[in-house]
Design a protein around this nucleic acid. Structure first.
Lengths: 130, 130
DNA sequence: CTAGTTGCAAAGAGTTTGCATGGCG
DNA sequence: CGCCATGCAAACTCTTTGCAACTAG
């Protein structure tokens, strides 16, 4: 998946690197980069490849037709757990240390090894919590 | 949302109560209960209502067109965190106690209050972990 | 040069909606 | 009896695919 480094692929990855941890629909991504010269089919095809190689995650939105793509392949995301605020939609990073502690707690209570990249904790951030 | 207790609504809720915490597509749900007498539009309309009232959660699948519905409104799900195995797809419950401990860890490291119902931890269960 | 990738337009799927009918309270 | 929900079919959108042209290595 991704043997050639095409111009379109670079455009898409550039966009993701500039906007890590943010939810976009396929169309939103396309709207953002179409002027650089990429077709919507190329967007979809690359999105599929990236999802398979787990560099992006798919997230279901509130409306049933809404699917978001979130780039989690960047360096600074490695090993840290993500917190997503239900109200404002912002994403926060937890430190690697915190992630490890949670991972420990989980295995303490059950036989389960967490995949930190795929997991997102939903809740309310301090700004939105009154 | 849901002022009348229609036959179709009962059929759908029955199905969910019998299959809590399991991911189904809209079509799979329909296939399972259509013989009881319900149309696919009624399924979709009720699914929307249930998602709004947060009795079910939407989850994005591996293929971009796949959206799963998971019933989390049952009594025994209240207060416990869910673990979902990436390999076998099974869902496991964590005790309320464990959920609280994780909630504590999170607020210890950041100002964030977890919504346990909406959050799902992904990883690998003991059966699939070799 | 060869295999992988793109663009376009058409096909395919899943979801939503308008309207008349039927049912709950 | 009045409002809400259902069923059906048509309409919509989003996503995928076939094919010819193009391009990275």
């Amino acid at each position: 998946m991704g043997k050639y480094q095409t111009e379109q692929r670079i455009i898409l990855m550039d966009f993701f690197e500039k906007n890590p941890d943010h939810n976009f629909t396929a169309r939103q991504i396309y709207e953002n980069i179409k002027d650089s010269g990429i077709s919507i089919s190329a967007v979809y095809r690359n999105l599929s490849d990236l999802a398979i190689s787990e560099k992006i995650q798919r997230v279901a939105g509130k409306n049933s037709r809404e699917i978001f793509y979130r780039y989690t392949g960047s360096e600074k995301c490695m090993g840290c757990l993500h917190l997503s605020c239900i109200k404002c939609g912002k994403t926060f990073h937890m430190s690697k240390e915190a992630a490890e502690k949670i991972s420990e707690t989980i295995s303490e209570y059950s036989n389960f090894s967490i995949n930190v990249i795929k997991s997102v904790i939903y809740g309310v951030c301090s700004d939105c919590d009154e």
